[in-house]
Amino acid sequence: MSNKILIVEDDVVFCKLLTRFLSKNNFQVMDAQNGRDALELMELNDFGFAILDYRLPDMNGIDILEKLKSKNQESKIVLITRYGDEDIATKAIDKGADAFVSKPINPDDLLSVINGLR
């Protein structure tokens, strides 16, 4: 499985923090702050993993999840959102997400989730 990860998170500071953290842990990371940019990256790259925020300015993480799964069924997807959105987690799992993590997120815990999906 590819070590290439797509992060889609509209909080720029948090997105860059995750990008640096995962890069230091031997992943090739690309990031986007909205769905449109994420879809462009998906056209040009094959991602083994994706970390998708549910709430984005132009679409939601499940929309991106569906597009990514249609391109590469083997991609492992972690959906992230604010604490308390269990109904979203259920929908995401039904659509093909491999894991769901509530914010606030500890990067080490996220890395453990990713490593568990390998």
Rank of each mutant, 00 (worst) to 15 (best):
I105R: 04
G96Y: 03
S102V: 06
N115D: 07
E86T: 06
A32I: 01
Q33V: 14
I7M: 08
A92W: 03
D10E: 13
S70H: 09
I93C: 05
F49C: 08
V78E: 05
I77V: 15
L44S: 11
D11G: 06
K76H: 11
A38T: 11
E40Q: 13
I80T: 09
I62E: 07
L111P: 01
N3D: 14
F14R: 01
F14Q: 03
D46V: 14
L52A: 03
G48M: 03
S23P: 03
L52Q: 01
G84P: 05
K67S: 13
D85N: 10
D109L: 13
F47W: 02
R55E: 06
G96W: 00
I51Q: 02
M30R: 09
I5F: 04
Y83E: 15
M1C: 06
D109Q: 12
G116Q: 03
L18C: 03
E74S: 15
G96Q: 10
D37C: 02
A50Q: 10
V29C: 12
K24R: 14
R82D: 11
K67V: 13
I64T: 02
N26G: 01
L18Y: 08
A38F: 06
P107H: 07
P104T: 03
N60A: 01
N45P: 06
I77K: 00
N72V: 07
M42T: 05
C15V: 04
